[in-house]
Design a protein around this nucleic acid. Structure first.
Length: 822
DNA sequence: CGCACCACAATTTTT
DNA sequence: TTGTGGTGCG
């Protein structure tokens, strides 16, 4: 009937449905046809837009930008629409046909993020909004989406469907093996160089054959070496039925390029594609996205060129800068209203980033209040910097902020040390994200290697890793012999080991080798009998690995606890996946897992992490420490303007993490690599308008140094008495998994039967908090005896002020401090 | 083959 | 300062 009226109604209904969005967000949500670039400034509600855009697609298809109508527009229909418009949701089922134009099935939507955490959050929000249908949307990382595709299409790419994924550490080992096999000295060419060079080549979709040996001045010997290593490396991966992270993308691209049916299938399948953090994509990922979007052309990318901080890893900022040239008829929408930070913080961020030239240009604004000035504090050295931060946190926490409000961000992981030390002294609960990650720990990698070899006997890198761990008297030479024989016969190392007695070169260790493969065989065979977690326990016990860990008194507790953690992760995985659970599946999941994925914002602790890890997060109070030239910006960026711009983007990321308060600190002198250096103030400090800064540094010229104004400097004086305690383990203690994987039960009795060894972890009860009041005397593990001056309840804990005989008055959280009442 | 000792290097790292 | 990896001896 009246087409215009129907379309008008439709638009009104959609507008009402998304009325919570601002104008730009609304546009971004409803522009669903064709290429779209959403430039989303920090804190501009990017995730909200992504979630709502998908919801909009599911509910209305492309109704907002289409004139199609699939139903008769009767008077009844008009009445229904009116009712719906007035808020009567019960008629949705009846009006749906009128509102919706070609809605996609949930599995036709592909939403790509960079971290598992982001993917899971997205999924969760989609399920909240759309119900169970949300679960069927492909919301995943580049890597897991590609793995899914590759496993399905494994026949056509020459891998098995259960190929192994090698992470950076595995890759490094393999590179080392290749280098040794080719007799290329690591002094001439470091593994690191080779690895980044190969990775860079893969990012650019350059295979070993095409890899050029030409440098700027013709033939380049190093490049020739790299080409040879690259070739062998790929061969070895293939033999091990393994792919590294880059291969996962590269092989998917290859599959789509070489296999028209596959390309066609996935183009049909993914009608709508969204890519988050587009500024971080590399060339291979760009090609992948273009291939997939080549059919429907419904490609929406979201990103912020000002937050591109991963170019050192191959991210290509050009992808986002020239999106409009790469995708015809692309629409660009800018989200510039910031909902996160105070005006002051935002002004600072804008002022800093304005110094960059390689950018799309964008000006964030906010209607939030101005807020407080940005605090700048100069400290004498890094220890004082830590104390300043700890003290400031203590003060604000006493005023009622939970510890989870605070984040301390730094340029390099090494900087966490001083901060940790100071936080421990004040008994402030904290956790460090990144640094040495859980899955990078030796015992975890070993344990995982056992599982990997049990599942895939051809996993040579992992096989070599555990063959002599614990000691089985099988060394490098033996394994090299095995490897040569295997290469010569074209068989796997594992099968050569299983028949070791047939080869004279292996005669001396044949028995040991056979014993090992028989053990692994028996693991594989028995794995089907019980739960995976039990299987893990069995493997750890019978391989002797768990027992070997308990040999070292120094480290056994922590390491066994880490095994506990892995056991729990496996048990949890099993619980979540039920029938579907498999060891292969578990290994894949953890191969694609990162540290930030485990970041739990529910815990009431201060968070310490690098600026890089902080991207995507926000905190009410942010400390940006080490604002010094040479540290941040890093000295390595001094002679490269592009690198310096990336550092500046990093500063921008850091500043925009803060919601309410931002505090910048620097130290006049800092111990780096065992030497004390004096770094000038960071270039970026000058770029923040002075009017936004409140400088609380001690009022003596920093040039005179720490010694000269010790007496006058507030912190120098207060803290000079606080020396002493070197150990700083109890702050972290709280975050170790507790109890269960009892160290004692791992006593090295190798013959005893398994069961006694590896007990699944159990929760330890937290010690009851004894009521303390002013006047009580207490004993502290490190500080000794002291008198309680005050006790004030704070959250679930009690803030104590204690005068210690040995080191003066300290503020402590009772729950953290393990005090003994005397 | 295993262990002890010394040399050396050392941003950032979503997968 | 920290951690890793190579070398050389028993």
């Amino acid at each position: 009937m009246d087409k215009e009226r129907l379309i008008g109604f439709r638009k009104q209904i959609i507008e009402k449905d998304f009325a919570r969005l601002n104008a730009m967000q609304f546009q971004a949500v409803t522009t669903v046809c064709g290429p779209l670039l959403i430039l989303a400034g920090a804190g501009s509600g990017k995730t909200t837009v992504i979630v709502n855009r998908i919801a909009c697609l599911m509910k209305y298809g492309n109704a907002y930008c289409s004139n199609k109508i699939y139903a008769d527009f009767t008077e009844d229909a008009e009445a229904l629409m009116l009712r719906y418009l007035q808020g009567d949701a019960s008629v949705y089922g009846e009006v749906k046909g009128l509102l919706c134009v070609d809605p996609p099935k949930p599995w036709q939507i592909l939403a790509i993020t960079f971290t598992n955490k982001a993917a899971n959050e997205l999924k969760e929000r989609l399920v909240n909004m759309l119900g169970e249908e949300g679960n069927e949307i492909w919301a995943s990382t580049f890597h897991s989406a590609c793995v899914r595709i590759l496993r399905r299409e494994s026949d056509s790419i020459g891998f098995s469907s259960h190929f192994t994924i090698y992470d950076t550490d595995d890759s490094k080992r393999l590179i080392r093996d290749c280098q040794r096999q080719l007799n290329i000295d690591e002094k001439i060419l470091s593994q690191k160089t080779v690895l980044t060079e190969i990775s860079r080549a893969k990012d650019s979709l350059i295979g070993p054959e095409e890899y050029s040996t030409d440098g700027p001045r013709g033939f380049d010997q190093k490049k020739d070496y790299i080409k040879r290593i690259y070739t062998l490396y790929q061969q070895m991966l293939k033999n091990a039925d393994a792919m590294d992270f880059d291969d996962i993308i590269v092989n998917t691209v290859k599959l789509l390029q070489d296999n028209p049916q596959a390309l066609d299938y996935y183009r049909q399948r993914f009608r709508y594609i969204m890519v988050d953090e587009y500024q971080d994509t590399n060339h291979a990922q760009y090609v992948l996205v273009s291939l997939l979007a080549g059919g429907h052309k419904n490609i929406c990318v979201v990103g912020d060129d000002d937050q591109s901080i991963y170019s050192f890893r191959g991210a290509n900022i050009e992808n986002i800068l020239s999106f409009e040239e790469q995708f015809d008829h692309a629409v660009v929408i800018r989200l510039e209203e910031n909902y996160r930070s105070t005006g002051t913080i935002l002004d600072a961020a804008n002022a800093v980033i304005a110094n960059n030239s390689e950018r799309k240009g964008k000006n964030l604004w906010t209607s939030n209040e101005r807020g407080e000035k940005i605090e700048l504090h100069t400290c004498a050295d890094e220890a004082e910097e830590g104390r300043f931060v700890a003290d400031s946190i203590m003060e604000k926490s006493a005023a009622g902020r939970p510890f989870s409000d605070f984040a301390v961000l730094y340029r390099t992981n090494a900087q966490s040390n001083n901060i940790e030390r100071a936080l421990v002294r004040s008994a402030i609960p904290y956790r460090v994200i990144g640094g040495r990650r859980f899955y990078e720990r030796k015992e975890i990698r070993d344990a995982v290697a056992y599982l990997a070899v049990t599942v895939n006997h051809n996993d040579n890198v992992r096989l070599r890793r555990i063959i002599n761990e614990p000691k089985r008297g099988i060394g490098e030479t033996t394994m090299n012999n095995v490897s040569s024989i295997a290469a010569y016969l074209g068989e796997s190392m594992y099968s050569v080991m299983a028949r070791a007695d047939e080869y004279s070169a292996l005669s001396r260790s044949a028995a040991k080798l056979k014993l090992f493969t028989e053990m692994i065989d028996s693991f594989s065979a028995r794995l089907a009998n019980g739960t995976l977690a039990e299987g893990f326990r069995m493997i750890m016990n019978e391989s002797g690995y768990a027992a070997s860990l308990s040999q070292d008194e120094e480290t056994k507790e922590e390491r066994l606890e880490n095994l506990d953690e892995l056991y729990s992760t496996l048990a949890r995985y099993e619980q979540e996946n039920g029938e579907e659970a498999s060891l292969e599946g578990f290994l894949e999941e953890i191969a694609l897992l990162s540290d930030i994925d485990n970041y739990d914002d529910q815990l009431d602790t201060v968070t310490l992490m690098t600026l890089h890890s902080a991207k995507g997060l926000e905190f009410p109070v942010v400390y940006l420490v080490g604002m010094e030239d040479g540290l941040f910006p890093s000295s390595k960026s001094f002679d490269d303007p592009r690198a310096l711009e990336e550092e500046r983007r990093l500063a921008y990321v850091g500043i925009t993490r803060a919601k309410e308060l931002l505090c910048l600190t620097k130290a006049s002198a800092r111990m780096q690599y065992g030497k004390t250096t004096a770094n000038p103030p960071s270039l970026f400090l000058d770029e923040v308008p002075a009017a936004l800064i409140d400088d609380t540094s001690p009022r003596v010229s920093a040039a005179f140094g720490y010694r000269n104004n010790r007496a006058g400097g507030a912190y120098g004086a207060v803290y000079s008495a606080a020396g002493g305690s070197r150990s700083y383990d109890y702050g972290a203690e709280r975050f170790k998994s507790s109890g269960g994987f009892s160290a004692d039960s791992f006593a090295p009795k190798k013959t005893a039967v398994q069961d006694a060894f590896y007990k699944p972890p159990q929760k330890k009860e937290s010690p009851a908090i004894v009521a303390l009041k002013a006047g009580d005397t207490v004993r502290h593990k490190k500080f000794g005896a002291g008198l309680v001056l005050s006790a004030a309840p704070l959250g679930n804990d009690v803030l104590l002020e204690v005068a210690f005989d040995s080191c003066g008055t300290k503020k402590l959280m009772q729950g953290m401090a393990k005090l003994e009442k005397l």
